[in-house]
Amino acid sequence: MINSFIATLCFGLIVIQGLCEECSLSKINIGTERSGREIQGKPEWNVTVINNCSCAQSQIQLSCKGFQTAEAIDPSVLSMEGDTCTLIDGNPLQPLASVHFSYAWDPPFLLLPVHSVIADCS
């Protein structure tokens, strides 16, 4: 009985560790699509950032070199500092969760994740 409990516990830890090892910046997916609206003559773009990781990721920063918008973005969702933008004030984006924001500019910007801190999955 104790041996099967220990085996089950070890297997569970291996599975959890394996899931955490899969977490990386490549698990943060960013989708951008045109909303159909125009703001100050610029097309509006809806952005969705998804954490496709089994662990929370915080301190998510995106490359925002040259980023501009004719539409205000709530700074608690996306704050710009130089060539990087911080998502949701650096707070954790939970596993499989997403955050959304919109901006207006032409052409659309390629926003890429450049940094995150992966939470301990245990």
Rank of each mutant, 00 (worst) to 15 (best):
16 I>Q: 00
67 F>H: 02
33 E>F: 14
5 F>C: 11
96 L>E: 08
120 D>Y: 09
66 G>C: 12
55 C>N: 09
19 L>S: 00
32 T>D: 08
78 L>H: 08
71 E>I: 03
6 I>M: 06
80 M>Q: 09
77 V>R: 01
46 N>K: 15
106 D>E: 12
55 C>A: 15
46 N>W: 07
3 N>C: 01
58 S>Q: 11
37 R>D: 12
100 H>G: 08
5 F>P: 07
15 V>W: 04
45 W>S: 04
116 S>G: 14
64 C>E: 12
55 C>Q: 06
46 N>I: 12
22 E>D: 03
7 A>I: 01
104 A>D: 05
55 C>P: 09
29 N>F: 00
100 H>K: 14
95 P>R: 13
48 T>R: 14
76 S>E: 12
112 L>N: 13
89 D>K: 15
104 A>C: 15
17 Q>A: 10
61 Q>P: 07
73 I>S: 03
4 S>C: 13
95 P>T: 10
34 R>Y: 11
103 Y>N: 08
54 S>F: 02
122 S>Q: 08
17 Q>D: 09
48 T>A: 15
82 G>I: 04
85 C>L: 09
74 D>G: 04
76 S>G: 11
102 S>P: 09
71 E>G: 01
47 V>L: 05
115 H>V: 03
23 C>A: 14
80 M>H: 07
98 S>T: 06
40 Q>P: 12
79 S>R: 02
112 L>A: 13
79 S>I: 04
89 D>Y: 07
26 S>W: 00
109 F>S: 01
3 N>K: 03
58 S>C: 05
85 C>E: 02
85 C>K: 00
21 E>Q: 08
27 K>D: 04
97 A>K: 15
108 P>W: 06
116 S>L: 15
107 P>G: 04
35 S>E: 08
81 E>I: 04
122 S>C: 02
79 S>N: 14
32 T>C: 15
64 C>H: 06
109 F>T: 00
95 P>H: 10
106 D>T: 06
112 L>T: 11
60 I>V: 13
114 V>I: 05
86 T>P: 08
67 F>S: 06
43 P>Q: 14
94 Q>T: 03
24 S>W: 06
95 P>M: 13
89 D>A: 11
72 A>P: 00
71 E>K: 04
90 G>C: 14
80 M>G: 01
77 V>H: 06
119 A>L: 14
54 S>K: 08
71 E>C: 06
35 S>K: 02
2 I>P: 00
118 I>D: 05
30 I>L: 01
73 I>F: 00
63 S>M: 03
112 L>Q: 12
56 A>Q: 03
101 F>G: 04
42 K>L: 07
99 V>Y: 09
28 I>A: 02
115 H>D: 06
29 N>Q: 12
11 F>N: 02
88 I>H: 07
